[in-house]
Amino acid sequence: MEPEHRDQPHLPGPTVYPIGFAAGVATLLVGLVVSPTVIAPIGGAIAMPAPATAPAVPADVGEAAMPPPAPGERFARSRFLEGATLGLGGVIGGVVTVPVLGMALGPAFGKQGKHRVDLGSIDNFPQGDWEIAHFFLHPDEGEVTRRTAYIRYNGLLSGKPSFTIISNRCAHLGCPVQPNGPSFPDQTKNFGTGGGQEVTLIKMLPAGGFGCPCHGGQYDTEGNRTAGPPVRSLDRYEYAIDNGHLILGKTYSVAHVDGTGSTAVIHRYGLAGPGQHIDGWEQIFYPLQPPH
């Protein structure tokens, strides 16, 4: 049934004021650029006149739009609209949230990434000597990927060259450990090995092993912890010999090392962050590692 209208005009009557106002402001802005003295005031004049405002009608005068619902009464349409709002809102929220969270959290599950660092000919590493090696994990990303390893050539082990390659990342919280002993900057070798890779080798003599400047962690020359807060040995690099060149691969974590040099027995684990236990009972706290 058609609702009954009393023949009462809406007050104030319809007006083109909003359009005039918009046109006036637009003219004013254009005028400010092209002709501040002529067009701009015209625009202002168009925008100025305010519409007539009718006196407000008190709420208790006039007709109610709809009888108020009886207490507890709900219309099918209102229930539908509520469900539609919640449902559609949920879908839209999900559609936005999933990719956003995925993009933000994705790296947490990312891999260590492959790198293959060419450190040049193994002839640069005299047997029994230590070298500080600076290189880039990803030469194209520049300085931030510069890493340092401590390298000793152990001679041949059943016909193959054997290296001890220790990462300088402290096993406590990741500061750069330093050799406890002199280094010889005058015996520095700098060379490129292709692909933007710049290698620096500095001869050193870590007679007292390695020490960390941050909280005093100490390690012997095999990277075993001897004192301080670190929870395990220093990490090491995988390596391969390719065409007489020393190639660094992934890093891996080490619980401890028995023996020294080419015959050392390395208790090796997947890469774990500094400070994370990989053996002993505390390892139960780190059951899962991002893939490596």
Binding site: F109, G273, L288
Partner: peptide
């Protein structure tokens, strides 16, 4: 990263990678 259980993932999240 040394937080139990989730630590390694939190560290990776903060670094935005390994």
């Amino acid at each position: 990263g040394t937080a139990p259980f989730l630590g390694p993932y939190i560290a990776q999240f903060l670094r935005g990678g390994a």
